[in-house]
Design a protein around this nucleic acid. Structure first.
Length: 417
DNA sequence: ATTCCACAGGAAACAGTGGTCC
DNA sequence: GGACCACTGTTTCCTGTGGAAT
């Protein structure tokens, strides 16, 4: 390795000790890191009192021995949907405990459990079905969807359960797998006896999600609906002030920096997650600088760091073909699909790789577009057809950095100007 | 007004993989 | 050990698109 990055130097143990000792002794800005994550759920969720009350009212039917309506919750990311639902359910469980009543609440995210079968498997895991004898379990794979559903319903019947099934990011499940599984669960109550039930709470980031559902599923799933509006900049400010009190030492963050975090997050989508992330990363940047306070520059640097880190991770973990596509876009003059595909094919030949079809490459481009790594514009050239203009929106430095350890690409990376 | 280009993108099929069941 | 199952990434086939050229 001729890289000057790696030099043989004598290790200075005293210096390392100093670093660690300083870390332990120095006063840090952040006194409670946990409060700087969106998942941290405070006792009272800001500005969601009405929503919390409405969800609680829907679920309170359980305490009177009834089955609550299915519920669909809509809202952009970072509007507190998941946190509110989790909070209400925790309280419901406490109340039910007081009344000696048992309810089961499997809570899953359809982005992680992204196929119908994985949802069934997760439900089985969370409900404890997989602690039963083997032929009653829902294994990781190998069963048909019908059999897995039957085993879950059978368990509910045998154990006489009341189940509230919460599926977060339910839209991504329906996008990929259709609504069969939802149909089965909304109809499941017909197959179990009166004192048992399954109710569904679906949490969706997309308002148009309902349009993709079969009318029968739509009517039973959305017995009740609720929309979480994005936070306003003023509300974000209040949330941040609240978190700052918990997270930082006194006077660590001036109002101007809080305002900037709120403004940057509020300008886009009113995303509280983003606002809190900016605060956390800003604090980390300030800490590393040895500063006692977080100023506006730290917040701006935090924004850059978040963007750079996300892009770097996506690029680094991409498949070889996605990486070659990115290199083809860099090398393409006008960014037309056709030209880009030709370059991609020749790069594949140079790397002794079998090129994927144009159809698949179109798909990869649209994935990159969704991730915000490229922008695409459809241009009509009349008689000369219709094409996409693809433009890269990430700095070449980030790409070079992310690809530099890829052995396959090593022969063409120096071409990156 | 019609033709035609160069794609976009939906739908279905397929191959390979990793698993269970009997 | 063969039948069966789901998942992922891909290919194949196909229809739709909008404006310059004719």
């Amino acid at each position: 390795m001729g890289n000057s990055r790696w030099k043989c130097v004598e290790l200075n143990d005293d210096k390392l000790d100093d670093v660690f000792n300083n870390a332990i002794e120095s006063k840090t800005l952040i006194k409670n890191r946990k409060t700087l994550t969106i998942d941290y759920v405070p006792e009272r969720l800001p500005f969601r009192d009405n929503e919390s009350t409405m969800i609680a009212q829907t679920l309170s039917v359980i305490l009177r021995g009834g089955r609550p309506s299915n519920l669909l919750i809509f809202g952009k990311p970072g509007t507190g949907k998941t946190a509110v639902v989790k909070n209400v359910i925790e309280r419901l469980k406490h109340k039910a405990d007081d009344l000696n009543m048992q309810i089961t609440v499997p809570f899953m995210n359809a982005k992680t459990a992204n196929t119908s079968y994985k949802i069934l498997y997760e439900i089985a895991e969370m409900m404890g079905i997989n602690k039963e004898e083997k032929k009653l379990q829902v294994h990781f794979t190998g069963l048909s969807l019908g059999e897995a559903t039957d085993r879950i319903l059978d368990y509910i019947r045998r154990k006489n359960l009341r189940v509230v099934l919460v599926i977060d990011e339910i839209d991504s499940l329906v996008d990929k797998n259709g609504d069969d599984i939802l149909y089965n669960f909304t109809r499941a109550n017909e197959r179990i006896s009166a004192e048992q039930f399954i109710s569904l709470i679906g949490i969706s980031n997309s308002l148009t999600f309902k349009d993709k559902l079969d009318p029968r599923v739509r009517s039973s799933l959305s017995e009740e609906e609720m929309v979480f509006n994005p936070y306003t900049i003023e509300q974000l400010k209040d949330i941040l002030v609240d978190r700052c009190k918990l997270a930082f030492t006194e006077h660590a963050i001036p109002t101007a920096a809080i305002n900037l975090c709120a403004a940057m997050a509020g300008r886009e989508t009113g995303d509280a997650r983003k606002a809190i992330d900016l605060l956390r990363v800003g604090a980390e940047v300030a800490e590393r600088e040895g500063s006692n306070t977080i100023n506006e520059t730290h917040v701006r640097l935090a924004q850059q760091k978040i963007d750079r880190d996300t892009n770097y991770e996506i690029l680094k973990n991409s498949t070889s073909h996605t990486k070659i596509v990115i290199l083809a876009i860099i090398n393409s003059k006008n960014g037309n699909t056709g030209e880009m595909y030709d370059i991609y094919s020749s790069l594949c030949t140079r790397l002794q790789q079998e090129p994927l079809t144009q159809r698949r490459i179109t798909q990869i481009i649209s994935e990159l577009d969704q991730l915000g790594l490229v922008t695409t514009n459809i241009v009509n050239l009349g008689r000369y057809g219709r094409s996409q203009r693809i433009k890269l929106v990430i700095p070449l430095m980030t790409i070079r950095e992310a690809f530099k350890d890829d052995i396959l690409l090593s022969s063409i990376i120096p071409d990156l100007k």
